[in-house]
């Protein structure tokens, strides 16, 4: 229940924060929903905690007409909370999948405090966001005292609890595309009954045109060490009419070639099968919402 002691800094500017973490021994605190429980169980014991919550720059949620994606992008400051994303009129209209994923995270108290930047940087293999971010082909904007870089989400997340983030680097924002009109979306999840984390979670985006499925993106979390895009499913469904049989056929490939997790709550076999089931469900709902 009681964490080890640490040095604490609460910088008010990004510059100050980057200078503090440049020293190398600091752990960054955003909402704290992952870090603080670990510290309380003494599974994490950082010597220096840099609390980003006073940096106003990291809270902005805004649209950028040109930016990273051809149709425009939403820039979600690393400190945007799950609740802000789930309830933001901008996100709900321009990137509704992300709002739907956010509304599925943890519980309301966690969503009030937990942040998209913190969750993404923690890279929990059972977290909800990565499924959505994979399906959205999101980008992660990183910054150091010396410069900036932007990584696609599938390069940012390396493995379970492991990212491409360097010790002197911060997640500045998550960038997602402004959704094309008519895109259907869905996030479907089998929740672990105790923690609410995803045993498997599947996010889907689809577009239809003239009776054909023209675009499919599927992101999967929970199944493996890292979230991934189920590209086989995407390819199989694109070009079909999106019938129930088409969906089943495509979804059957959702777990192919993936090294599935096993734990107390689900065997690899069950996880694989549930990935197929929830992929089908996500695709079905997404197609029903596409027009």
């Amino acid at each position: 229940m009681i964490p080890q002691n640490f040095e604490y800094s609460a910088p008010t500017s990004l510059k100050e924060a980057l200078a503090l973490i440049a020293k190398g021994d600091a752990k960054v605190l955003a909402g704290g929903m992952s870090l603080i429980p670990l510290m309380k169980l003494r599974l994490a014991a950082p010597e220096h905690v840099v609390d980003l919550s006073r940096i106003a720059d990291l809270k902005s949620v805004h649209e950028d007409g040109k930016g990273e994606f051809p149709g425009g992008a939403l820039h979600l400051g690393a400190l945007a909370t799950h609740f802000e994303i789930e309830s933001s009129a901008l996100v709900r209209s321009k990137c509704p999948l992300l709002a739907e994923v956010a509304s599925n995270i943890g519980d309301v108290q966690v969503r009030n405090v937990g942040t998209i930047g913190g969750s993404t940087a923690h890279a929990d293999p059972a977290a909800d966001y990565p499924a959505g971010l994979m399906a959205l082909e999101a980008k992660v904007h990183l910054t150091t005292a010396k410069g900036e870089r932007t990584l696609p989400i599938d390069q940012f997340i390396v493995d379970a609890l492991s990212t491409a983030l360097k010790p002197n680097e911060l997640v500045r924002e998550i960038i997602v595309p402004v959704e094309t009109r008519g895109t259907g979306f869905s996030y479907q999840k089998l929740a672990q009954p105790a923690s609410g984390f995803a045993v498997v979670g599947v996010a889907a985006r689809v577009r239809k045109s003239a009776g054909k499925v023209t675009f499919v993106r599927v992101g999967v979390t929970g199944l493996a060490g890292k979230a991934f895009r189920a590209t086989r499913v995407e390819k199989l469904l694109e070009g079909t009419s999106g019938s129930a049989a088409d969906i089943q056929k495509a979804a059957a490939q959702a777990a192919e070639g993936v090294d599935a997790n096993t734990d107390l709550h689900a065997s690899a076999d069950y996880r694989r099968q549930m990935t197929k089931v929830f992929t089908a469900r996500a695709l079905t709902q997404a197609l029903s919402r596409a027009d």
Binding site: L29, G32, I36, K40, D51, Q109, V110, N112, V113
Partner: peptide
């Protein structure tokens, strides 16, 4: 441990007082 912080429900056991 739920309390309201700036009008929002939060779990006060998962937050440092300094925050």
């Amino acid at each position: 441990c739920t309390v309201e912080l700036d009008g929002k429900a939060v779990k006060s056991c998962t937050m440092f007082a300094v925050q």
